[in-house]
Design a protein around this nucleic acid. Sequence first.
DNA 1: CACTGTGAAACGCTTCACAGCA
DNA 2: TGCTGTGAAGCGTTTCACAGTG
Lengths: 259, 259
Amino acid sequence: MATGRTHRPATRSRGIPEATVARLPLYLRALTALSERSVPTVSSEELAAAAGVNSAKLRKDFSYLGSYGTRGVGYDVEYLVYQISRELGLTQDWPVVIVGIGNLGAALANYGGFASRGFRVAALIDADPAMAGKPVAGLPVRHTDELESIIRDNGVSIGVIATPAGAAQQVCDRLVAAGVTSILNFAPTVLSVPDGVDVRKVDLSIELQILAFHEQRKAGEESGPAAAAASRTGAPARTAPVAGSGKGPEGDVPAVMPA
Amino acid sequence: MATGRTHRPATRSRGIPEATVARLPLYLRALTALSERSVPTVSSEELAAAAGVNSAKLRKDFSYLGSYGTRGVGYDVEYLVYQISRELGLTQDWPVVIVGIGNLGAALANYGGFASRGFRVAALIDADPAMAGKPVAGLPVRHTDELESIIRDNGVSIGVIATPAGAAQQVCDRLVAAGVTSILNFAPTVLSVPDGVDVRKVDLSIELQILAFHEQRKAGEESGPAAAAASRTGAPARTAPVAGSGKGPEGDVPAVMPA
DNA sequence: CACTGTGAAACGCTTCACAGCA
DNA sequence: TGCTGTGAAGCGTTTCACAGTG
């Protein structure tokens, strides 16, 4: 899960719960699809199904935005598209920079959904001088030296970090110092930022590990819940290899036993 | 945030809260770094800082796994690495397939953190016949026709979907039919899957939209909370362009006014 | 004495269930 | 009648604060 930190810590920012904000883009996408098919109205039930949530949640979410529906009828698709777009700040264009044009950075630069909805790639930035000037997704890659001037000249407030983990904090610091206040981090590191800067992270490895956890549970449940329980009681830890054998740089197995 | 659906709907799977599971990989990463620096023990305070959470949360999280710390001392790094790895199911290797070898799929295939922790790319699959056989990240791309046999032959239970949105559901259905029970979806679509299959999604566009929301709030707060509130009262909707002008396939602005 | 482990309180989110309106 | 909008209940998560212990 790519969860952000540094949200409004205490109070909700003007009444809309964070969980609701996170779902608005989902609704918007579903509504846009309906709009393209010229569907005039949707019920909460239909829209909820399209967005993959339940209808009570959807209605509650929309109630935070105001009363935009019609009882007995549903929601006006076009109107709702506009209201949600406005609420999300997508009626204006957001210039973004992508820092780190490796495989991932290039993929992001080429990602269409990027430009389609209020976001514009203002620049691609990479530390490798050999990359400088090379066109990626129609834009010339700029060198890191230009980072500050690019951000200031374009009024960029959103930065995407797609560098290796080792460079991420440093890039982050420079982005923030230059005026960026929202960061989407693809590097597998915890970024520390001053108050007022939002960070959201996307981490493939974490997502896979969460899936692995559930996958393991499924396998363990084959012999009933008892089997799954037994594999967690400490005793099976005895099957652990002896410490110090070393099958790689990754942490080995401990010699310690649980209490 | 890339949040999955189809978790255990009601009861927690054997006592560990979902929120805790989602943080275990974070702790594991921090612990691995400590392990590589041969640090023998950490306090909850230190580890929490490294993982970007607060220490009370971390202690509570670890308490679900068992009592693995020593009062007055802290946690044994190696031991904890092993316990968390085991809990996450990373002591075994998980073969994964990546479907859709475009920019993103290639980036994922090349992503190192992939292999480093319990995951092994069993195959890269693409629908484009021209891609077949081409090496990406050292593996030859296989054609979609082989999807079922690849999954069965390799005992793959985790699939990564990096196809265009339009192909995602179909690919998903085939993966599930062939035996995959966990899916990481990068395509901007809601996937529907049968019970027992876990889906987690990673969606760049949604993350950016959430950032834009907060970014907008920051800008609005310059003139105090009153200004931000005013911009949500419906009256400003009058500034909306007239519907029907059409600047593209994306939904335009509605002609309807709020109640 | 420092730090873990954990009840209990606080909080936010989800779900229920139905009043209210078109 | 059909569907929205919403109080209120229910749940899961976070935070507090301190008892327990090596």
